[in-house]
């Protein structure tokens, strides 16, 4: 069994308003950061998981995202898996 390091980025689904991201985007030009667009504010969940292979990890993580870690009505997830 291998320990896999997983990073799950949870962000508002495209098309779902993200007022926090929009506020950050509106604030950046005040500091001179012009030309910034598509700011989205989400959260990062890190976890380690023990599994035989990468495919198993993908399946497990996709399942936990679907059923618990994200609310599929308003959130999307992007998963990054690496061997620890």
């Amino acid at each position: 069994m291998t320990i896999w390091r997983v990073k799950i980025e949870v962000s508002p689904r495209s098309g779902i308003a993200d007022p926090a991201g929009a506020t950050i985007e509106r604030s950046l030009p005040a500091l001179g950061f012009e030309n910034v667009q598509n700011v989205r504010l989400g959260k990062l969940i890190r976890l380690d998981i023990e599994a035989e292979n990468r495919e198993d990890v993908e399946k497990l993580v996709s399942d936990m995202c679907e059923r618990f870690l994200t609310n599929p009505v308003i959130e999307d997830s992007c998963v990054e898996i690496s061997e620890s």
Binding site: P12, I16, A17, P19, A20, T23, N71, V73, I74
Partner: peptide
């Protein structure tokens, strides 16, 4: 109730934060 799936949809942050 929405998180449990007993009612449809979801509640997100207020517009205007």
């Amino acid at each position: 109730l929405t998180e449990t799936g007993l009612l449809p949809g979801a509640l997100q942050k207020n517009v205007g934060l």
